[in-house]
Computed example of a mutant assay.
Amino acid sequence: MVRKCLSGLIAGAGLFLISSSVIPAWTQTPPAETFQPGPWQPVARVNPRQPISIKIINRTAIPIEYILTTQTGFRRLSPGQTAQLSNFSLPAYLNINPTRDRTAITYRVSVLEKTNAVTVEVYPAGSVGLHSINIDQTGAIYVY
């Protein structure tokens, strides 16, 4: 019994170490009063009571596809191009995918508070990539 519990504990610790090294540790600037370091913290915030816009900039060498899940159909964005999204409700889910297999992407997300504008810059990544951005009903922006 003790051996079974110990092996489960070791397996769980190994899984935690593997997942910790794969999931990026995002931080929010400036930090919220409730901010605790860890992978599931918002990277930025918008004011959910004002109109929100999202600007996507493709900084990769390949086309990407994106979709705001409240809209229909993927749209393509060539390298160096920019797309603008607006007039959507929260929660909003933005999915961005590389058009080539075995290509990973990552994001740099920033918010211009004065205009409630979100900028998502898409970059090539190492072996682990990101695919989704969520703006929840409170205005918190999560990347995963």
Rank of each mutant, 00 (worst) to 15 (best):
L85Q: 08
Y123Q: 04
V109M: 06
N97H: 12
T82N: 14
S132P: 04
L94F: 04
V109H: 06
P91A: 10
V109F: 06
G129L: 00
T106C: 05
I105F: 03
I105A: 02
T115M: 05
D136Y: 15
A83W: 07
N134P: 04
I96C: 00
T138Y: 15
V122K: 04
P124W: 00
G139A: 15
T138K: 15
R102L: 14
N116Q: 02
A125R: 00
E113N: 09
Y107P: 02
P79D: 01
P124A: 04
P91T: 10
T115I: 07
V120H: 10
N116F: 04
K114Q: 13
Y107F: 12
E121Y: 08
Y142D: 05
V120G: 11
T99C: 11
V111Q: 03
G139K: 14
R108Y: 09
H131T: 05
G129D: 01
L130Q: 03
G80C: 09
G139Q: 13
T115C: 03
V109E: 08
S127T: 07
N97T: 12
I133C: 04
Q137Y: 13
V120T: 07
S89V: 09
Y142E: 07
N95W: 08
V122T: 06
V128K: 02
L112M: 11
A92Y: 05
T99M: 12
T82S: 15
Y123I: 01
T103P: 02
T119V: 10
G139H: 14
L90Y: 07
T99F: 10
E121C: 06
T103F: 03
Y142N: 09
P79Y: 03
V111P: 06
T99A: 11
H131S: 10
I105W: 01
H131K: 08
S78V: 04
V128L: 06
I105T: 03
V111N: 02
V118E: 08
I105Y: 02
T106F: 01
V120Q: 08
V118I: 09
V118G: 07
A125G: 03
G129Y: 00
V109K: 03
N95H: 11
N116M: 05
K114D: 13
A125N: 03
S110W: 05
G129E: 02
I135W: 06
V128S: 08
S86M: 07
S127P: 05
Q81L: 13
F88Q: 03
K114G: 12
P124Q: 05
A140I: 11
I105Q: 01
A140Y: 14
